[in-house]
Design a protein around this nucleic acid. Structure first.
Lengths: 169, 169
DNA sequence: GCGATGGGTTCCCTCAGGGAACTCGGGTAG
DNA sequence: CTACCCGAGTTCCCTGAGGGAACCCATCGC
């Protein structure tokens, strides 16, 4: 649908969603990161059209989020593995999953648990400040322009910033 | 495009992406949470088609993520505010933004900074274990079936789980 | 009365997604 | 040697969601 290209907008969320803001991509990454790495397995597990799956996978490979590698020679079989860039999407998935659990889990409870091997407990993810370790929320944070945030022709900042909220109108 | 309905799949990521896995929804939430709350402002800021914006907003209101409220009577003006459910999407946005910063920021650096009011520093978000406070990664966690994760007809678990990885074939 | 907002809705067109069939190379059973 | 299956895609057609731009309607400010 001639999706408006978001990649060139000066906002990291826009850049990230240009790739990740697609219903399938998140689910593909979830599967790959939890061990479903082969084309047919992904197609069956997700119920995605094979055409779209092929397109998504090659996009993800192009972007360096996944690599396609041969894991067996006779017969030749390939699978997809997450790169470091891909593995770093895990916090996004955890955040999405946690939100889904909070707001859509039925009476039975969430469909899956996350088990933290390091401490041996089932856990929930919390997004905290790298500095002080306390949780970050929309109320206790402010978005400010960063070094790469200068405005130019064809470039939009990450949305009117708090500071420019009334100024830009 | 007769998008495959993901909402009924027994996976919180699928449920969340059914709503959120759309390029525009993430950006709308980013804007609303940073103070861009009016229809026209959103339309201009995002460069989104007004038709699609209207559709997204009403979907988000329907889902209880946003509320539409009149903030002034003469002339009548409405805006959209995030509910608690909506504000809790903030960690997802932070995770997306952080990933975008890590992998797509140019030489100039990221386009925006997140300032944590509680500790007074510019910060980066870290996703940690609610239990022990250490970072969660795809390597140090495992997904296990949860209470709501029983499999039935028409219901898929959150992707073949680690445990069933070789068993289901 | 007249134009300017703000907040949408309507119309048309194109192209991405769904579904299912087809391909192609390498096993493997008989 | 032939027949059949599997993994991994590719091709084809059809539908409907997204883009773009015009249109609508109520309420100001003048």
């Amino acid at each position: 649908m001639t999706r408006t290209p978001l990649a060139d907008v000066a906002c990291s969320i826009a850049r990230a969603t240009d790739l990740f803001g697609d219903a399938w991509t998140a689910l593909i990454m979830r599967d790959v990161l939890t061990g479903v790495t082969r084309f047919d397995d992904l197609a069956h597990d997700l119920g995605i059209s094979r055409k779209v799956l092929a397109a998504r996978l090659s996009r993800l490979v192009e972007e360096g989020v996944l690599v396609r590698e041969r894991y067996q020679d006779r017969p030749p079989r390939e699978h997809y593995q997450a790169t470091e860039k891909g593995r770093e999407l895990y916090p996004v998935l955890l955040a999405l999953m946690h939100w889904g659990d909070r707001w859509y889990a039925g009476e039975a409870g969430p469909p899956a648990r996350v088990h933290h091997l390091d401490c041996g407990h089932d856990t929930t993810p919390v997004t905290v400040c790298a500095h002080c370790g306390n949780p970050l929320t929309s109320e206790n944070t402010t978005q400010l322009p960063g070094p790469g945030g200068r405005v130019g022709p064809g470039t939009r900042v990450l949305g009117p910033l708090i500071a420019s909220r009334s100024a830009d109108r």
